[in-house]
Design a protein around this nucleic acid. Structure first.
Lengths: 218, 218
DNA sequence: TGACATTTAAAACAATTGTTTTATACTTTT
DNA sequence: AAAAGTATAAAACAATTGTTTTAAATGTCA
């Protein structure tokens, strides 16, 4: 099926460029003509393959963002499995930070990924539901289960959720606020700086500012 | 000057509604006609008072977001001054979380504020420079100075910055990702839940997950 | 090869966009 | 009160938007 193959090529060029542009400028900030210029194809191709612009946008989530999230989660599990021992909070946080900052993606892909996701989070819409159901929900549940196994003391569900959201919030922040972080630290956002960030995320997640002493059961 | 006064009223109605709409849908997601309908004024009023749409957008930052940020910082200092003792990391974090989650603003104003700011952070533009210079930079420097005073042990500048960004990341996350947080915890985002959030932010910022013991000088 | 379906291309569509123009009302000042 | 300055209103502008239509090209399969 050479036909079907060539079909897929144009279709995926559109998806790729659409994702990048939507991530940068948002749904309404991007025109269909902008996308087809980047994808080097004809205007009607968008409506031919995806029906309309809105559906192209949703397809970007279905065909790109969600699968990528799942592959990042896979990477997390793989990292965690490699660690010895893998049953400590430190191991879980390290594997998580590694998977979400270094992971299998190119840096541009990761930037794209977080921009697209963050954009949808403030104003729940159709895409939000997709992300919530297929990305946030399973991730939180997985993390919740794993952390509960490795944290020795008793911990109520709500506090666990807030802890996890704090760690995820940090990871998202260090991805999404790159321009701020690099301006403040003066470092380029390269692989050595990412290693530094991962170190920090682990340290802060486990000990916070690390000053004073933790009271038992505040 | 009744003239100048009445002038200001329409002008501010435009600014108010523009900020709310821009925060919800972004610059290109909002039409001038949408704004003037919400502000209950004529179409040409936007160009009369602000020249063009882009300039209205920037004016929203200059006349609304930046002053509000400064008043939040004032509130932070006031909270901190009220605390006894006020020279501990716990006091600083508590005052910060209080100022940024409870502060002097209505809840709608706060949502608006964070949405507008986060939107600009991913794609540096003109408004980004304004926010960076008048909001992020002074806040970070103030926090850096204060924390250095109250943290007993030696701490390198970069680590301090990362610590501060982690705390700010959490605060932003718990404001911006409301819909996710409320869905996960099942709590409405009311004042009692905000108190819970502030408690958590203090606890996590000081001790992290609070498991295991912190080694001295990792 | 020839009939068929599939894909690309180009042109045209109505609707919406930001902005400008022109005219009318309202205030202030002389 | 007349004049001048300021603010609101309505209509029109060209440009851009997403989408549709129509035509040409390309591929598949008998």
């Amino acid at each position: 099926m050479k036909q079907k193959n060539k079909d897929a090529i144009v279709k995926e060029r559109i998806l790729n460029n659409a994702e990048s542009l939507f991530a940068q400028k948002g749904f309404r900030g991007v025109t269909v003509r902008e996308i087809i210029n980047a994808a080097n194809c004809n205007l009607s191709a968008v409506n031919y393959y995806f029906g309309n612009k809105k559906n192209l946008y949703l397809e970007v989530f279905r065909a790109r963002l969600i699968p990528r999230s799942q592959s990042m989660c896979e990477r997390f599990k793989k990292f965690l499995g490699q660690r010895q021992p893998s049953d400590s909070p430190a191991a879980v946080v390290e594997a998580l930070a590694q998977a979400f900052l270094e992971g299998p993606l190119s840096d541009d892909e990761r930037r794209c990924h977080y921009q697209l996701m963050v954009r949808e989070m403030s104003q729940p819409g159709e895409a939000f539901d997709l992300v919530f159901e297929h990305v946030m929900q399973p991730l939180l549940q997985d993390l919740s289960r794993r952390l509960r196994l490795v944290i020795t003391e008793e911990i109520e569900e709500e506090r666990l959720i807030l802890n996890i959201e704090s760690i995820l919030g940090m990871i998202i922040h260090f991805n999404y606020f790159r321009s701020v972080i690099t301006r403040f630290t003066g470092h380029a956002y390269d692989s050595s700086f990412k290693k530094r960030l991962i170190e920090h995320i682990i340290d802060f997640s486990l000990y916070g500012l690390g000053v004073g002493k933790k009271e038992v059961l505040t």
